[in-house]
Design a protein around this nucleic acid. Structure first.
Length: 418
RNA sequence: CGGGCUGUAGUGUAAUGGCAGCACGAGUCUUUUGGGAAGAUUUAGCCUGGGUUCGAAUCCCAGCAGCCCGACCA
């Protein structure tokens, strides 16, 4: 990608109103643009990151048998009345009337739609288990949007719903999803603590949240300094603990961002929306359900919160907008331009995604500053100096030392790191 | 929704009751080119509505908008 033709422009200053780190960095570096509180446009750079997160999630959910669907955001009042949530969910439900005075809502979650769908599809135990998911826009009339991309009113969510004949089968799949979630978060570049949580408006008996420790987070969690045990603050008062119940270790606390939430729903929705199946013994039973959500923009925000320095963002390798940022430094001369072009083509041919800063009349300092701010993992520089040796300077965004290498050496080096 | 803070060119700021100014950006020209270059020139603004006043960006009221704290959530 030629940067001179790319739709993006960094800002020299941080936005004056924003205090959350992810908003300050993502807006200044031009990954996102705010339309109003809690509603953002994703610009080309930001959308690339978002799509990478989306693809990681898709791969991991496909790997545990998920089948992707796409459900409507526009939903009738009738199914929400069946579940009993038409009044209970306002907010966050956005409600309005169409021109025939029919009551509609914009989906804030999809238990109603998916249960209705599954109920009409599933006849007997032979149709189960069933794992359906989507990556789709949710609308939430939040009382307050906060923290940049952390709490917004319109966002893409991966929501997976599972349907089972027994609670044992649900338990088994629930653990599989937790395994998939761990992989997703680790590929996005951050660690999570899995905590017991309360189920809120979604309901169900058991739920777990995936928390990333971070001061910008809206939650407070308590966790063991030695083992994996952790719990949400809202659940702690009931237990009043001083030591870890698992290993006796010291308990620590910290703020955290909720990056995912999984629920054992049981039969709450299937009973209300009439989703039943006929079991082996001929009896009619409600389908046992689980649901599992991840907010994509929130993962993007979490990655930024976890990986940055004074100069800007440091993207984890798998979700970086590009693999390589190639800077052409110095007075524009044909020989240098041809050399940079050769390196650019060579890198693309080797399968890397390259942002090539070919802008003319932009000072070296400005290019370096922009590169640090944007945070692409590998920075390559070509200039008269490097051209003289037929080499390219390479530096990792999070590294200190730069090296002069040939194109072949660089390709090897980057591949080794992948 | 309750509480707090804040609204001045595209961005960041100054003027605090008396001529809206500066820097960056953007356009044109010249000179520059390894850590946000220099000169010349052009461009562009007081959130909206009311009130007080001889006079309001400034004081008052209302509205709108943004951020932060609380409750809710991915």
């Amino acid at each position: 990608m030629y940067q001179s033709k790319y739709f993006f422009r960094t800002q020299k200053e941080y936005p004056k109103d924003e205090t959350s780190l992810n908003a300050r960095l993502l807006i200044r570096a031009n990954f996102i643009d705010k339309l109003m509180a809690g509603v953002y446009s994703f610009l080309p750079l930001g959308w690339r990151v978002h799509k990478k997160i989306e693809n990681i999630i898709r791969e991991e959910i496909d790997a545990i048998g998920g089948e992707e669907v796409f459900l409507p955001a526009l939903q009738p009042k009738t199914i929400w009345e069946k579940s009993g949530r038409w009044d209970k969910m306002e907010p966050p439900l956005f409600k309005f009337k169409d021109q025939h005075e029919k009551d509609l809502a914009l989906g804030s979650t999809h238990e109603e739609v998916i249960t209705d769908l599954a109920g009409r599809f599933v006849n007997s135990y032979k149709d189960l288990p069933l794992y359906l998911y989507q990556i789709q826009n949710k609308f939430r009339n939040e009382i307050r949007s906060t923290g940049g991309l952390l709490r917004v009113r319109e966002f893409l969510m991966k929501d997976l719903y599972s349907f089972h004949t027994s609670s044992g089968d649900l338990d088994f799949y629930y653990q599989k999803v937790i395994g998939a979630y761990k992989k997703i978060f680790s590929r996005c570049g951050f660690d999570v603590k899995i905590v017991e949580a309360s189920s809120g408006a979604i309901g169900g008996d058991v739920s777990n949240e995936f928390m990333m420790l971070c001061e910008t987070g809206e939650d407070r969690i308590f966790y063991c300094s030695k083992c994996d045990w952790a719990i949400n603050e809202e659940k702690l008062d009931k237990k009043n603990l001083e030591k870890c119940p698992e290993c006796g270790g010291k308990i620590l606390s910290g703020r955290a961002i909720e990056n995912g939430h999984v629920f054992k729903l049981g039969t709450k929705y299937s009973e209300k929306l009439g989703a039943y199946f006929v079991d082996k013994d001929g009896s009619r039973k409600p389908i046992i359900m689980g649901c599992y959500g991840i907010g994509l923009g929130r993962l993007m925000a979490s990655a930024v919160e976890a990986h940055n320095d004074k100069k800007g963002i440091i993207w984890p390798l798998e979700i970086a907008p590009f693999d390589v940022h190639l800077l052409e430094i110095g007075e524009s001369k044909k020989s240098l331009r041809a050399f940079a072009e050769k390196i650019y083509q060579g890198l693309e041919k080797a399968g890397f995604e390259v942002l090539y800063d070919d802008r003319e009349g932009v000072s070296a300092g400005e290019k370096f500053t922009d590169a640090d701010l944007i945070g692409i993992p590998w920075r390559l520089v070509v200039s008269e100096k490097t051209l003289a040796n037929d080499k390219v300077e390479i530096k990792r965004r999070d590294g200190k030392e730069a090296q002069l290498l040939t194109l072949e050496q660089i390709i090897k080096k980057i591949n080794k790191d992948k």
